[in-house]
């Protein structure tokens, strides 16, 4: 029981991070029908941006209060990663809009390779350790088993929840969110109503990147180390989460992220940690056989 509770906590923490990344995949897919394969590397890049911000703030500017530093790091990573993704869309995807469907996909793969290599060159190939943050633990004994809940985990889950609430509000209640949903359903009609479609697509990339930046910052804090290759595995798992939840569905991305996180953690706790990466993909395959459009996805039906 105690072990189960412990794994549940770990799984939800990991799942939160996957969920935040998955939203970026699902939003971009929803609005332009493209799988943004560079998104995982945007996430990795954001973790580096966060690290640089953290070091600059604490070493150069002497910010001593950890919560304050953390909030500034979060904001800085969000802004800069948003700018990066904005530029990436302008350079690599927008010129290819209207060309055949595979072209932006190839471009995204190229961008993914560029980003990881770029970070490798400018930051070096070695792991970058990050200073331990939020190291306090809460220990509770449940059924003879010490369940630890770290401040990190509390922080990760609560930041994620707060952000998702804000994000939900943005999509459902603001004019930008409405424009986004309109473009997702019918870009031509949205333009006829005066919506600047290109700008809306740019904003989608910026928002997706900002959520990835939060994930990147939390990832850096959680694991205490960042590496240029860190985009691949979490990126792929978040993509899996988006497909699993039903690509194009925002709730699906979050639920998919949580499930993938939980499956991964439980599998490594109860079966084998060597095969922990196999479990999420196996579940994905089985789900897609029976529910081809994912948990909450819409079946592809042409409008009449």
């Amino acid at each position: 029981m105690g072990n189960f509770l412990q794994q549940l906590i770990n799984g939800v923490t990991l799942g939160s991070i996957y969920g935040l990344i998955a939203i970026g995949y699902t939003m971009v897919f929803g609005i332009i029908g493209m799988v943004n394969f560079a998104h995982g590397d945007v996430f990795m890049l954001s973790a580096f941006i966060a690290l640089i911000f953290y070091l600059a703030l604490t070493q150069m500017f002497g910010v001593l209060s950890l919560p304050l530093a953390f909030i500034l790091v979060l904001l800085g990573a969000m802004v800069f990663t948003g700018l990066w993704n904005w530029a990436i869309e302008r350079v690599a995807y927008r010129p290819l809009r209207g060309s055949f469907r595979l072209a932006p996909l190839i471009s995204a793969i190229g961008m993914s390779i560029f980003l990881s290599n770029f970070v490798q060159v400018v930051q070096g190939p070695r792991n970058k350790p990050t200073p331990p943050l939020f190291t306090d633990l809460i220990k509770v004994e449940v059924g003879g088993y010490d369940v630890t809940l770290s401040y990190k985990q509390i922080m990760i889950v609560s930041v994620t929840a707060l952000l998702l609430a804000g994000f939900w509000f943005l999509v459902q209640k603001t004019s930008l969110g409405r424009a986004q949903r309109a473009c997702e359903q019918d870009r031509k009609m949205a333009a006829l109503l005066g919506v600047d479609v290109n700008r809306t697509i740019s904003m989608t990339f910026v928002i997706g990147a900002m959520l990835a930046a939060v994930a990147g910052t939390l990832y850096m804090v959680y694991y205490g180390v960042v590496n240029f290759a860190d985009g691949a595995a979490p990126g792929l798992k978040a993509f899996t989460a988006a497909v699993f939840g039903g690509i194009g569905s925002l709730q699906g991305a979050v639920i998919g992220g949580l499930i993938i996180g939980l499956v991964e953690v439980f599998f490594s706790a109860y079966f084998s940690s060597d095969y922990k990466d196999v479990a999420p993909y196996a579940i994905l395959i089985v789900t897609l056989i029976f529910m081809p459009s994912g948990l909450l996805g819409r079946p592809e039906v042409e409008k009449v």
Binding site: R178, R181, A182, Q185, D186, K188, M189, K303
Partner: peptide
Amino acid sequence: GRRIFARM
């Protein structure tokens, strides 16, 4: 074809 946003 009216082009109503069906999911709004």
